[in-house]
Design a protein around this nucleic acid. Structure first.
Lengths: 136, 136
DNA sequence: CACCTTTAGGACCAAATTTATCCCTTTTAT
DNA sequence: ATAAAAGGGATAAATTTGGTCCTAAAGGTG
C-alpha cells in the first residue's frame, strides 16, 4: 500500500531530468529515456500525458522534443503523480461498493482525511526542489 | 492511487462485523461472510491473517469460529489494513530501483513523510469507532 | 472410537492491471 | 521530397488481484 507504480516513478525521473536541463532547452524523448533509465516507448506515453495536462510543451519534427511548460518551481509533485496515476481525490466512494450497501461506508471519512493529507504533502513539493536536491 | 484493494475493504467489513457482536460471542466465517457480503473462502484467508497477527482468536471444530482477540477499542484501522495489504512503512526504498541508480532517490524523503502521516491517521482510528459510527 | 463441524493451508485458476512493444499517422524543419 | 520527431491505437507479456477447491488438522459429541 502507498506505493508508487513504476509509471509514477518513471514520470518523476523523466520530468526531473527535464527540470535539470538549461531553461528552454529541448530534449528528445530518446535522450530523456536513456538518461533516466526508462523504456523509451513507455516514457513517450507518460510524456504524452504531461503534454495534455500542460506540464510540458511538445513539438514535432526535426528540432522537436519536450520542454517544461512552466518553471520547475511551479510544477508540483502532485501534478506529476496525478498525471499518470490519476487523481488522488476521486469522486467515487473510497470503499467502492461498500457505500452502496446502505448509507455511506464507515471508513469513507477516514480515507478522505488520508487523501487530503497526502495531497497537501505532494502539493508542497515542487519539481525544482527535487531536481536540486541531488545530482541525478 | 491511495485506494484500498478489495481485500482491504473486505478485511475492514469483516472485522467491523465481529466488533458489532456481543463481546465474547463466537462467529462463524460463513456467518461473517454472509453478513458483510464477502466471498466466504476469500474472507477465510483474510481472517487467517488476522489470527496470525493476533487481531482475532480462532478455534476449530464444533462451536468454533472467530472472536476479537482484544477489545475493539484496542485494534486500530492501521493494524487491519496492514494485516492484509502489508506494512505501510516498508524498509525498502520507496522508489524501488531508483535508489540503486546512485545515491538515495530524490523522492524518498517525501514519500517517507506521506507514509508517516498516513500511519498516524490510521493509527488514530479504532475498530470500535468504526463499528459504532453507523449501524451496518 | 467414529463422526461431524469448523478453521488451516496449499494448489490452482481467472480476471484485471501493469508494463511494456509495435506500427502507423501527423507535424515540422530542411 | 525527405527525414526527424511526437501522437495515438492495437496488442502482448508479466504481474497482481481476486477467488475457488481440496485435503489436512483440530476440537467437540455420542
Amino acid at each position: 500500500m502507498m506505493e508508487l507504480t513504476r509509471k509514477g516513478e518513471y514520470a518523476i525521473r523523466g520530468i526531473i531530468y527535464l527540470a535539470q536541463q538549461p531553461p528552454g532547452r529541448v530534449s528528445l524523448i530518446s535522450e530523456i529515456a536513456a538518461a533516466s533509465d526508462v523504456p523509451q516507448t513507455f516514457l513517450a506515453k507518460i510524456f504524452q500525458s504531461f503534454a495534455k495536462l500542460g506540464l510540458v510543451t511538445s513539438s514535432r519534427g526535426t528540432g522537436g522534443g519536450f520542454v517544461l511548460a512552466r518553471p520547475a518551481s511551479a510544477i508540483t509533485l502532485r501534478e506529476v503523480v496525478e498525471a499518470v496515476e490519476g487523481p488522488i481525490l476521486p469522486n467515487r466512494c473510497l470503499l467502492g461498493s461498500s457505500c452502496d450497501r446502505g448509507g455511506p461506508c464507515l471508513v469513507h471519512g477516514v480515507w478522505r482525511t488520508v487523501q487530503t493529507e497526502v495531497v497537501n504533502i505532494l502539493d508542497g513539493v515542487t519539481i525544482e526542489t527535487l531536481a536540486r536536491t541531488r545530482e541525478n
